[in-house]
Nucleic acid binder design. Structure first.
Length: 414
RNA sequence: GUGGUCGUAGCUCAAUGGCAGAGCGUCGCCCUGUGGAGGCGAAUGUUGCGGGUUCAACUCCCGUCGAUCACCCCA
């Protein structure tokens, strides 16, 4: 019985072209994380279900993948990176540095209904600093984020920043029995998406009077940056974030209610695929998850969107890291010469591929052309006899006869 | 999870209940050691899957799987 080949609902295959793009972006942001002293961390795909259940709210429990293993243990697939990291902090408290800072790029699983840009397995990329309440820690996160994006090569990066204290101060008067301040914040967070009228309507439908709703919006738009936030912004600017790229945005809310201080988002002007990352300070979350009190500040990068945006801005060369030279083969007599030449090229760190069949030369050239391999080395009986090779530049069509040492020099210099 | 839209060749898409097609790609030849351009030719389908209505279903109905959009939630 044959089975129809298909990818599981909500899951994706990344073919070489796409995978290279993802690796490119991951590589660029990792460089910056390391530069800022963030250390790599990896946790298992599976955890005990009890670790995850109930930690994200009852709505989310339905989105957890849970099942039993053969030893009857209740398991769950990783849902995010924060809860497993909270476990790490509790479990390895004695050996981790006090102000632990780590980066983590791993896939997480959510049994959600998929749609575009929303999958059941996707990559999360987090950086966080634990145990520090200093504005310097907040600024480090913002700055590392800015430079990580810059290192990928995006033409313009804007950091939109606000803090929960400011939102609370200006919105608290509007809270009532029908509508909590978090509910107001959640609605205001949609300002960019549904517009002023949309937010007003939503607030009204949540039980706020029209006049009050308008006042709440006006109050927010006139808000001033708190002293703490001003310190964070100044620290980020001192760390090299251009002043014009970090913007106090009083209506920035971010829906998650666990944030306790600074909140921020990354926006790429010119790319309208939405925010490419967001985070903030969450001093109570880890304690709430059952650990000890651990103040924390961090960001989750929207890795998939970053890749899409990198693609959109054409930051990734299609030939990136591909094979540099294809060696052709002619027949069984000359194949050894081809193999030996390949060996020498590879010893010289030239990315070399040998054609894996005795096809006609036109097929071999066509293969190189289609794969975008820039050089082809032609080795047939004539060349083997003279102990030389013929190097063909696929772009110009130019061919030169070289001995193997000349070939290495030529390819290394190109 | 709720509510829409969609599913036809490898890809993009036609065919308004009446013979399943086109473009692109693929393969072969023109070209016996040279790719891209061009010419000529060829192959490819249980119309996602299962049922129903009908003389007749790609087309209508039901179910199912998948994709997609909005909401929810978020990344």
């Amino acid at each position: 019985m044959t089975i129809k080949p298909q990818t599981l609902k909500g899951f994706r295959d990344f073919l070489p072209e796409e995978k290279r793009k993802r690796d490119f972006v991951a590589q660029k942001i990792k460089e910056i994380f390391e530069l800022f002293g963030f250390e790599p961390l990896e946790t298992p795909t599976l955890e005990y279900a009890t670790l995850l259940l109930g930690k994200y709210g009852k709505e989310v429990d339905k989105l957890l993948y849970t099942f039993k293993d053969r030893g009857d243990r209740e398991l769950a697939l990783r849902y995010d990176q924060t809860v497993p990291t909270a476990r790490i902090l509790a479990q390895y408290q004695s050996i981790l540095p006090k102000y632990f800072r780590r980066y983590q790029i791993q896939n997480v699983f959510r049994a959600d209904k998929p749609q575009k840009g929303r999958y059941r397995e996707f990559t999360q990329c987090d950086i966080d600093i634990f145990n520090s309440t200093s504005p310097v820690a907040d600024a480090e996160i913002v700055t590392a984020t800015y430079f990580a994006f810059q290192n990928v090569g995006y033409p313009k990066i804007k950091i939109l920043i606000n803090d929960r204290q400011t939102l609370f101060k200006y919105l608290k008067p509007f809270e009532n029995l029908k509508i909590s301040i978090f509910s107001i914040i959640q609605s205001i967070d949609k300002l960019d998406k549904i517009g002023k009228n949309g937010v007003l309507q939503e607030l009204i439908s949540k039980g706020m009077e029209q006049k009050m709703s308008e006042q709440a919006l006006n109050s927010i738009s006139s808000a001033k940056s708190s002293q703490n936030l001003t310190e964070i912004i100044n620290a980020a600017i001192s760390s090299g974030v251009p002043k014009e790229d970090i913007l106090f945005t009083s209506n920035l809310a971010r829906g998650l209610d666990y944030y306790t201080g600074m909140i921020f988002e990354v926006s790429l002007p010119g790319y309208d695929g939405g925010s490419c990352g967001g985070g903030g300070r969450y001093d109570k979350l880890i304690e709430h998850l059952g650990g000890q009190s651990v103040p924390a500040v961090g960001i989750a990068f929207g890795f998939d969107r970053m890749v899409e945006a990198a693609d959109f801005f054409k930051l990734i060369s299609p030939l990136l890291n591909g094979t540099e030279v294809l060696l052709t083969v002619f027949d069984k007599k000359t194949i050894n010469f081809s193999l030996q030449s390949a060996s020498i090229l590879r010893k010289n760190k030239i990315k070399t591929e040998i054609y894996p069949a005795l096809d006609k030369l036109d097929k071999q050239l066509k293969y190189a052309d289609k794969k975008g391999i820039p050089y082809v080395v032609i080795i047939g009986p004539d060349e083997a006899k003279k102990n030389i090779v013929k190097l063909k530049n696929m772009k110009t069509g130019e061919q030169t006869e070289l001995n193997i040492d000349e070939l290495v020099i030529k390819l290394k210099s190109s």
